[in-house]
């Protein structure tokens, strides 16, 4: 997978998880366990759970899903 594609898939997965309503620990663990994002594991390792919770709340309040 190209680096650009990995970046794109990481963003897709991150927003999808933040919009899912899952607990922040589950979101972090899911990203870390996905082998597609091995290159982002150090980045995700540093995630502050409070900030992941904030991001999830922001998604709940402001996010608009794409309409097919």
């Amino acid at each position: 997978m190209s680096e650009d594609l990995k970046y794109s898939e990481f963003q897709n997965a991150l927003l999808g998880l933040l919009a899912s309503g899952l607990p922040e620990e589950t979101i972090i663990a899911t990203l870390k366990s996905d082998s597609r994002f091995d290159d982002y594991r150090d980045y995700v390792d540093q995630f502050d759970p409070d900030m992941v919770a904030v991001a999830s709340e922001l998604m709940g309040k402001w996010a608009r899903r794409k309409v097919d």
Binding site: S8, N12, R65
Partner: peptide
């Protein structure tokens, strides 16, 4: 990104 068309800005790697 992904299923989300717009929302609050988040930071990036």
């Amino acid at each position: 990104a992904g299923p989300i068309e717009k929302g609050a800005p988040l930071s990036v790697p």
